[in-house]
């Protein structure tokens, strides 16, 4: 995999991909490629962040993202603290900013934050000097997920530019989708979003994507698809009455894949609802890169933590 390094990382935080340049995104992917090699070694550890402390501040339950960030930090030799706060108890207690400032007073370096409110990492980043990495906020952004999706795509297909990528599922409530749209379009991919009409948010076409509610149209010509988790427990319930009906109309099956480009890459940010967004055969099939995405997540997050730390050292 050939990746070029064209720029320097200078930002204190990683809040989203919307305001990154193509060069900055490529720099992260380039850096991740060298960290990927580390994760295959016998001793999977480098001293890059020795003496640094990373705090995972999670206001929403998460297994894979938190574990991935934790491993990424540990493989860089940072000390890691996990703090899980139930969002419902926050209203009675400390504000996000007070929590952030208290954590900062413990002399830490980076806060990785996951929050149910869109924009919470932006507010936190504005209130503290420590770096903030967004691990997913509301429906807004999930930048490291999109970065690992792009890293995986680039590993598989050798490029991003010119690819047709379709994002299928609950577009309205997906932070993974928004970050993917920003990142992919910046790197020159042609992005299509596909969902039932009720799950297509107003004005999404202004983000530079093609919009359709027809699954066949979304699959036709696609080099890769990113299939989103359907969450029937919230707004999806009114938008789509039944899991079975959704699977019938939008679920990715072998029959549907047969009509697609050969070698189409199937991604999913997890956790999968088998038999809802895609069939088990597809999830475990040869087009699926779902587990590779998980593996690549560590390298990408190592790259993010490393670049942010490096930029901070340079500012000193």
């Amino acid at each position: 995999m050939i990746m070029e390094k064209k720029t320097m990382w200078t930002k204190k935080d990683l809040l989203g991909l919307e305001h990154l340049s193509a060069e900055e995104i490529e720099l992260i992917l380039y850096t991740a490629a060298s960290f990927k090699e580390v994760t295959t070694r016998q001793i999977k550890k480098v001293p890059a962040l020795r003496g640094k402390t990373v705090v995972n501040l999670f206001y929403e339950p998460s297994t894979r993202t938190r574990t991935s960030f934790e491993l990424a930090a540990k493989r860089l030799s940072a000390d890691v603290i996990n703090i899980e706060i139930e969002a419902s108890s926050v209203k009675k207690g400390e504000t996000l900013i007070d929590t952030g400032r208290n954590i900062e007073a413990l002399k830490i370096d980076i806060i990785v934050v996951r929050h149910n409110c869109s924009g919470a990492p932006n507010i936190l980043a504005g209130a503290i000097k420590s770096s903030v990495v967004n691990a997913g906020d509301g429906w807004h952004e999930h930048p490291t997920q999109a970065l690992l999706d792009m890293f995986t795509l680039k590993s598989k297909l050798g490029r991003i530019e010119g690819l047709n990528v379709s994002i299928i599922g609950d577009i309205a409530h997906s932070r993974v989708c928004r970050s993917n749209i920003w990142g992919l379009t910046k790197l020159g991919a042609k992005v299509t979003v596909c969902a039932p009409k009720m799950l297509i948010p107003e004005g999404v076409e202004k983000m530079g994507v093609r919009v359709t509610d027809n699954i066949d149209e979304a699959l036709k010509d696609a080099d890769a698809i990113n299939v989103l988790r359907m969450q029937f427990e919230r707004d999806g319930a009114t938008a789509f009455p039944s899991r079975l009906e959704y699977f019938k109309q939008y679920g990715i099956t072998n029959e549907r894949l047969k009509k697609c480009k050969k070698g189409i890459v199937v991604m999913h940010p997890g956790p999968i609802n088998r038999g809802v967004e895609m069939s088990s055969e597809v999830a475990d099939g040869q087009n699926s890169v779902i587990l590779e995405q998980v593996t690549n997540g560590i390298a990408v997050r190592m790259a993010v933590l490393y670049l942010i730390t490096l930029a901070k050292e340079a500012r000193r």
Binding site: G119, W139, H140, R175, P201, E202, K206
Partner: peptide, 12 residues
């Protein structure tokens, strides 16, 4: 409600 609420991920 519109493009800005969509890109910010806020309810419009």
């Amino acid at each position: 409600k519109g493009f800005v609420s969509t890109k910010m991920g806020l309810r419009g």
